[in-house]
Nucleic acid binder design. Structure first.
Lengths: 188, 188
DNA sequence: AGCAGCCTATTTACCAGTAGGTAAGTAACT
DNA sequence: AGTTACTTACCTACTGGTAAATAGGCTGCT
């Protein structure tokens, strides 16, 4: 029950960051949602920066696990890309922004450790995507010009941006359309 | 000198929103930078929501003026697209995020009028881009599949996302690379 | 079995600093 | 005398954070 509280705090804080941003919520918000006192939160996460850092690490772990599942369940690079985009779409459908996409916008006010953790998330995404793109190229199911890492970076940026704007319009379809177009540009 | 104060407030606030976000700065920050009191700011912009709304409107006006210049100075749709992307790059080079891209991330905490103004900015961008894309298609200098408005939306999202992430890495080149790749996808 | 002592999770009761905002006064120009 | 552009002096609510008290469960010892 004890370890559970930490996770429940993270669940609520995660939702708040994804919908309102790291600067858009307070310990009081989490405390209220969880029906405990603020002081209790500080017991589990001494400072907001700690909470934020833990949030990113857990999010990255969940995300990379999902990517491993994709690898395990499909061999076709085109399918992998589509399933990658589908992760974003699912997040958006829940009215959330990608946690790290949100934090990227707030970069200027983020504690240093959070900045590094956030970039690590994108680095790992890029690594996975680069692997998939390389594989797709080798298997001749994807075709695109130029450097593989740059292609991966472009893809991440395009999906994050599409997500961010689609959310402002409350329109998942807008994301889907952009996502399909971007993937089509890679032959997927 | 009086009318000037309002503009100087907007200048400073604009910079703060673009670097720290709307929730990442306070009237006290602006007052300090301008060496006036907070109360003086409230004289010019009664509430922060007012300030924010005025900020967006001024930003949109400047932006649309820049787009008119592009129209006036070039007839080639490929050049127009490249110059459009160059606007983003210049903003980023100044270590800023696009004002409305930043606000899109903070959408969940924005006052309603600001939400609408922000979407208006994107709508106008989309309108201009759609016009350019249509023209490029007609002139056979651009080629892309599917609906023109959707293509325009995709382009905006890709540039905003690339910008946001590149800024987190303090790497303008990362934006440039993504931007070139995206434009290449339209034949530009 | 009984209980002392400890650990974990939590509360109550604070704290200083900052947020956005207001009321009333003032100084200069028209 | 009125208008414009401010300042001084406040206000309330909230921010992240802390210290001390407390309640309950588990440990080992006699």
């Amino acid at each position: 029950m004890a370890a559970d509280t930490s996770q429940r705090i993270l669940d609520i804080a995660e939702r708040l960051v994804q919908t309102r941003g790291f600067n858009g919520f307070s310990y009081a918000d989490v405390a209220q949602a969880l029906k405990v006192t603020k002081a209790s939160l500080h017991y589990h996460f001494p400072s907001k920066a700690d909470l934020g850092a833990r949030l990113i690490k857990r999010y990255e772990r969940k995300f990379l696990t999902a990517l491993e599942s994709i690898d395990a369940e499909s061999g076709d690079a085109r399918v992998k890309l589509r399933r990658y985009a589908a992760i974003y779409e699912d997040v958006l459908r829940d009215n959330r922004m990608c946690l790290c996409g949100m934090l990227a916008a707030e970069f200027g006010t983020l504690p240093k450790p959070m900045r590094e953790d956030m970039r690590h998330f994108f680095d790992e995404n890029e690594r996975w995507l680069a692997k998939v793109l390389q594989q797709g190229k080798r298997d001749k199911v994807l075709k695109f010009a130029g450097s593989v890492p740059e292609a991966a970076q472009t893809l991440i940026g395009a999906l994050e941006g599409a997500m961010m704007i689609a959310r402002s319009y409350g329109d998942v379809g807008r994301f889907t359309a952009a996502s399909e177009r971007v993937l089509a540009g890679f032959g997927a």
